[in-house]
Amino acid sequence: MRPGLRRIWGLMYRHLALYRRSWPRMLELAYWPVLQMCIWGFTARFLAARMGNPGLIAGATLLGGVLLWEVTLRSQMGMSISFLEEIWSRNLGHVFVSPLRPFELIAALIGMSVIRMLLGVMPAILLAWGLYAFNLFTLGPVLILFFINLMIMGWAVALGVVSLILRHGSGAEPLAWGVLFGLAPFSAVFYPVSVLPAFVRPLAYALPTTHVFEGMRAALSQGTIRWDHLAAAFGLNLIWLAGAAWLFARQFHAARVSGALIAIGE
């Protein structure tokens, strides 16, 4: 294995070893996605029973929105919380004096984000299938493209959170849990962008997630793939990720200048 890959694997192994011996951490991964699916699953069933076919479509849109939003949320939290684990264990000093490059640290956090997201979201997807007869995989191969875009958006936001933690220390920790909820109303997760006030729509269209959810609704209700929305999501994700990487590099350097890396847990 190449040295860079070994270092990335080393940091991932540290987190996997932690999860292996901590069932509360494993449980926490799937707890909220499954709980969300239970609440919205029964809501969708209620809508279908009352409204017939339109209710079925609305219910499917609701469940699709819940599951795909969890992909973004769990990707973001998976990355941010893995970084926080290093702070909580007062281990960052050792990590940053090892030959691990900053981009390798990010790669390891992304790796953990993917694993955490899959462990969190897959039980909810299976629950939706078993309990509410909603099979997300009927979206077809385009689902993979949706997943990729939603994960990248989550990583971009997580990099921003990590940058703020580097700058402001543990005072910025709560952002790891809450920051993405602030984008949910503008991401048009459960309703089309046309519902939003006109002055908010440009903001909504600047979010990659909005294009994914617009694409999801088109696939579920009309059976069509909106390549224009997918292209916009990929393009915007590139911009968001580049911006977040720039912010991280800047804050990492600033932390090395100010000494924040030494006292980051305080």
Binding site: L11, R14, A17, R90, N91, H94, V97
Partner: peptide
């Protein structure tokens, strides 16, 4: 580097910690 003021992850075993740093230092 070694310092009593910088900890190793406390929930990992000694062996797991050394494996982690073995990989980080290639």
């Amino acid at each position: 580097f070694s310092s009593p003021y910088v900890a190793l992850p406390s929930r990992l075993t000694v062996r797991e910690n050394l494996i982690v740093y073995g990989h980080l230092y290639d």
